[in-house]
């Protein structure tokens, strides 16, 4: 069970704005990437640690979260480094949806979640049932539960751990 406050974004938050151009060539490192995460999304986040210092646990978004076609993993590590434990959205962009699975960060698809939450609301997420509770408003949403493979990768702490373990045990990947 995860619990904490959420930040509600506008529609179409782009990967480009989550990690701005000048940090694309930096190392993939949660601590480092989180310093300037969201810098291009809102002017108020365009300061060192500005997003991170809010201490949000969840992000709630509408369509096409992390879109714009950028495959860099800094987007995911930046969010994780800032303390984000799950992102709930109506839809996600493919490249970052994949990266999130590979890092074990739940990107959870949930219809209309954006209309039922305000920044600062306290939410509770149960990954087993997919139920998201808005404690502040006393409402509840049913999200799409993770596919078995996605849950397995999540439990392993990401695809690197999942594959490393298989290689160490001499198991084939299929």
């Amino acid at each position: 069970m995860m619990r904490g406050t959420c930040w509600v974004s506008d529609d179409y938050v782009m990967a480009y704005d989550i990690i701005i151009q000048e940090y694309w060539t930096s190392a993939i490192d949660p601590k480092d990437n989180s310093k300037w995460v969201m810098a291009g999304v809102k002017e108020e986040f365009n300061k060192e640690n500005a997003f991170k210092d809010n201490g949000y646990t969840f992000i709630v978004a509408a369509h096409n979260f992390a879109g714009g076609g950028k495959s860099i993993e800094h987007v995911i590590t930046g969010l994780m480094g800032a303390g984000i434990q799950a992102v709930f959205a109506t839809s996600f962009a493919r490249l970052q949806f994949r990266n999130a699975i590979n890092y074990g960060l739940p990107f959870v698809t949930c219809d209309d979640i954006d209309k039922g939450c305000e920044t600062g609301d306290e939410l509770e997420y149960n990954p087993d049932t997919g139920i998201i509770k808005n404690i502040t408003k006393g409402t509840e949403f049913q999200s799409v539960p993770a596919a078995p493979f996605v849950a397995e990768v999540g439990e392993a702490g990401g695809l690197m751990n999942y594959v490393r373990d298989k290689i160490a045990k001499g198991e084939t990947i299929e």
């Binding site: 993939i28 860099i72 490249l95 994949r98 590979n102 695809l159 690197m160 594959v163």
Partner: peptide, 9 residues
């Protein structure tokens, strides 16, 4: 298109 994790794997 994939990220560096998929490429490494």
């Amino acid at each position: 298109a994939i990220g560096v994790t998929d490429a490494a794997v």
